[in-house]
C-alpha cells in the first residue's frame, strides 16, 4: 500500500501523532523551523513511547505458519515492557519479511562459490551455503518441529515463559537440528530483530521510532555541533529520514 494512500493505517497513525505536537509539525534538522520552536519541548531522559497501532501488513515471503513463529519470536527477543514497546510492536517482523525480498536475503552479497566446508573453525567465519532466506525457512521449521514433538504445539502457541526457555535452548545450541546449526539461526534472528527495532522507519521497522526513543538515539538529526562538549542529556526527540518526529 502506498504511503500516501488515504486509508493507510501508518499514515493515519502519523497524522494522529502529529496532532499531539502543537508547535512543530515536521522537523528533521531544523530546516525551516525556528530554534525557539525546536527548543519548545525538550525532554531530559529517554521517554516511554506510546505503542504504535498494529498494522495490517501481509507477509510476502513467510508462510502463515512462519509468520506466526516470527511474530512470537521477535516479541520475546525484544519484549514490550515498562520501558516501552518491543520488537513486535515496532514492526520487526514486517521489517524481516521485507528484508527477505532484498539481495541480502539470497546471499547475493556473500561469496557463495564452493567448495564449502561446514566443519571449518569458527575463526574462519561463515562457511555454509545457506542464505538468510534458507536459514529462516529451515530454522523456523526445525524449532516448530521440536516444539510439536515435545508439547504437541508449535512455538507460537506456547506461553511467553515457555518461548523464552525454548529460545534460550536454541541460543545455547542445546537443540540440535539436522538442517542447520541452532546457534546460526538464533544469531540471525537476534541480529535482524535488532535491525527491525533500530532501523530507520523507512525500512518498515522501528515504527514511531519507538526503538530509538527508548535508548535516546536521535535518529537522522545528524548535526551536533552545539552538543559536542556538553555532559548533559540531549533534549530533542528522534527524527526519521522522512521527517517524522518521535
Amino acid at each position: 500500500m502506498p504511503e500516501h494512500a488515504p486509508d493507510n493505517p501508518r499514515r493515519d497513525f502519523l497524522r494522529k501523532t502529529l496532532t499531539l505536537i502543537p508547535v512543530v509539525t515536521v522537523a528533521s534538522t531544523g530546516l525551516g523551523v525556528g530554534a525557539s520552536q525546536l527548543l519548545a519541548a525538550p525532554q531530559h531522559a529517554p521517554k516511554v513511547p506510546a505503542t504504535p497501532p498494529a498494522g495490517h501488513y501481509q507477509p510476502t515471503f513467510f508462510t502463515a505458519e512462519e509468520w506466526a513463529f516470527l511474530q512470537a519470536a521477535v516479541a520475546r527477543i525484544i519484549p514490550a515492557d515498562e520501558l516501552g514497546p518491543g520488537a513486535l510492536e515496532a514492526g520487526a517482523a514486517e521489517f524481516i519479511d521485507r528484508q527477505m525480498n532484498t539481495p541480502y536475503a539470497t546471499g547475493a552479497q556473500w561469496y557463495m562459490q564452493g567448495p564449502f566446508n561446514a566443519d571449518a573453525a569458527p575463526e574462519l567465519g561463515y562457511q555454509l551455503q545457506l542464505s538468510p532466506q534458507q536459514i529462516y525457512r529451515l530454522g523456523i521449521a526445525a524449532v516448530d518441529d521440536w516444539c510439536k514433538a515435545n508439547s504437541g504445539h508449535v512455538f507460537a502457541a506456547q506461553d511467553s515463559a515457555t518461548r523464552d526457555r525454548i529460545l534460550a535452548k536454541v541460543e545455547a545450541g542445546e537443540l540440535v537440528f539436522d538442517a542447520l546449526p541452532a546457534k546460526l539461526f538464533f544469531s540471525l534472528l537476534v541480529q535482524n530483530t535488532r535491525e527491525g527495532f533500530f532501523c530507520d522507519p523507512v525500512h518498515g521497522g522501528n515504527k514511531g521510532m519507538v526503538g530509538w526513543t527508548q535508548i535516546g538515539f536521535p535518529g537522522a538529526r545528524a548535526d551536533f555541533m552545539d552538543w559536542v562538549e556538553r555532559n548533559e542529556p540531549y533534549p530533542f526527540p528522534a527524527v526519521s529520514i522522512r521527517g517524522e518526529r518521535a
Binding site: 527477543i77 525484544i78 520501558l83 523464552d164 541460543e171 530483530t193 535488532r194 533500530f198 535508548i215 535516546g216
Partner: peptide
C-alpha cells in the same frame, strides 16, 4: 549507532528485557 554500536557491560544477556534495560 544503535544496530551495530550497542555495547553493554559484561554478562548482559543478548536479548530479552535484561538486554533492553541495559541498552537503555
Amino acid at each position: 549507532r544503535p544496530i551495530a554500536g550497542i555495547a553493554n557491560p559484561p554478562g548482559t544477556p543478548a536479548w530479552g528485557s535484561a538486554w533492553k534495560k541495559a541498552t537503555a
